[in-house]
Amino acid sequence: MELAAGSILYLDGVSVSFDGFKALNDLSFTVAPGEMRAIIGPNGAGKTTMMDVVTGKTRPDTGDVLFKGDCDLTRLDEAQIAQLGIGRKFQKPSVYEKLTVTENISLALSGDRSVYASLFWRISPAQQIRVEHILEIIRLTPQRDMIAARLSHGQKQWLEIGMLLAQDPKLLLVDEPVAGMTDAETAATAELLKSIAGEHSVVVVEHDMAFVRELDVKVTVLHEGSVLSEGSLDHVSADQRVIEVYLGR
């Protein structure tokens, strides 16, 4: 538990099995406040399942999942965890297709999420400015009144990142943010995520090695539900076991 103190996210001995198949197997790792961490690993390594466990979608069979060192996430549901300040971008872009770009973002804006507060909610001038700002960051200002269904795949990815920004979480879990993006967009996304880190902690799952290299942060390699290797990208790339299961294929 000493390790947990001072961390933003702490996983220890987490196991999850689906019908006997161990998607996570005694998984342990720690993310420090303000840190950005890249998670890589072959298909089915358990990366998305790890995010499901942290965000309350899946309950672990065993193990501890602590936020900020003392908050036990395994006892909370999705909404409570989100309200604590953990935001998530899904592997498959999950925006509200029938709402406009602006509506998607303002729905995510941080604030009181009770039924009563929602009934009388009016966007404040400060929030208005924030929405404008986010629209600019994600380069969707011209599409602000377009329904999300009409955006391209890459634009939906960005919109979802914009929703994450609007939520203003302390910890961001970002699952494959650059899937379906061009090289230029990928580079821009790396820039964006790097600018977020520091103030926020970010965990990024990604297959795209060029992108991970661009991020230039500590990398955790998952394999069959547990950590195979950890360190700089150069360090893990040189690790013989990693080469065997992942990079060498």
Partner: peptide
């Protein structure tokens, strides 16, 4: 109202709305 937008959000993507922090 925003409540209506949340209701629509629940209609279209219930699970997603939980991850935004709304108690569906």
């Amino acid at each position: 109202s925003r409540l209506g937008t949340v209701m629509t959000a629940i209609r279209d993507a219930e699970s997603r709305t939980r991850f935004l922090g709304y108690r569906v």
